[in-house]
Write a protein that binds this DNA or RNA. Structure first.
Length: 260
DNA sequence: ATGGCTTGTGTGACAAGA
């Protein structure tokens, strides 16, 4: 089962590039972030024509997440628990039934948090505390699960081409990385680092200042796997070449191949 | 980078992103 995450930076702007990647990569499931669309305006038919079931959790102008799945999903829920006043569309979860097992998949768009310090950074950290609570609850259910998406977290210095320039940034500040480590310390496995060591692996390159041409990137799109899900991991890759395509997103897809 | 680009909104510039 090939499961991908892709921050598309607007479904309207990616209406050619996203189907082109789907046709080339043919993932079974895709978690999308930053659809920047309300549910009614999401062009589901483009993906239904390609055999995908479409589940959206959108909002006007900003944020918005979705799941595309060749297998019908069960028990789809929208919104991260823990704050009924939070109106930002950043979380969707569902169950995928495989041949041997079922896996709970969570698609997330974690707040950027800049400028830090400030209210946006406070919101990021509060959101990460709710994420940790949700991970604990899923662990207690003892079902295999994964949490995938744009975490807006640079885990370590090796995950940035120029780590010194991110030192004060909400993506790399000590408080953000500590919250990330608390997730790992629950017993979750980061899929990419379970298979690939060393620097130079990125999932985002800014549109500005020739960041792509200079390979000035950061790795901020991640998969966290529960222990049972980590046992299913066969592969994890970053589709870097997508960044060189026609009218690309500033993020590229990351995917796992799971045996279930 | 005091943001050099790209989005959405909407038809003006601005807000937001990372």
């Amino acid at each position: 089962m090939k499961i991908a995450t892709f921050n598309i930076n607007g479904i309207k702007a990616r209406i050619d590039a996203l189907p082109a990647w789907l046709d080339a990569a043919s993932p079974d499931v895709v978690m999308l972030q930053e659809i920047k669309s309300v549910d009614e305006a999401f062009p589901a038919e483009v993906f239904e024509q390609r055999g995908y079931n479409v589940y959206t959790h959108g909002q006007k102008s900003f944020n918005g997440v979705a799941v595309l799945s060749k297998h019908p999903l069960e028990d789809v829920t929208r919104g991260l628990p823990g704050d009924d006043s939070d109106e930002q569309a950043r979380w969707i979860e569902a169950t995928v039934i495989g041949e041997k097992d079922a896996v709970r998949i969570c698609g997330l768009y974690l707040p950027n948090g800049n400028p830090a310090p400030g209210p946006k950074f406070d919101y990021k950290l509060a959101w990460m505390a709710r994420l940790e609570d949700r991970a604990r609850a899923l662990l207690a259910e003892e079902i295999p699960f994964l949490m995938a998406g744009d975490y807006n977290i640079i885990p370590q210095a090796e995950d940035a081409a120029k780590p010194e320039s991110w030192r004060e940034d909400a993506l790399f500040r000590p408080e953000s990385r500590a919250a990330w480590r608390r997730l790992l310390n629950l017993g979750l496995t980061e899929a990419f680092r379970a298979r690939t060591a060393g620097p130079g692996h990125y999932s985002f390159w800014d549109y500005q200042a020739g960041a792509w041409n200079r390979n000035n990137g950061i790795r901020i799109d991640h998969f966290l796997l529960s222990p049972a899900c980590a046992d299913m991991l066969r592969d994890c890759q970053i589709d870097k070449d997508v960044r060189a395509g026609e009218k690309p997103s500033d993020h590229v897809p990351v995917w796992v191949d799971l045996d279930f």
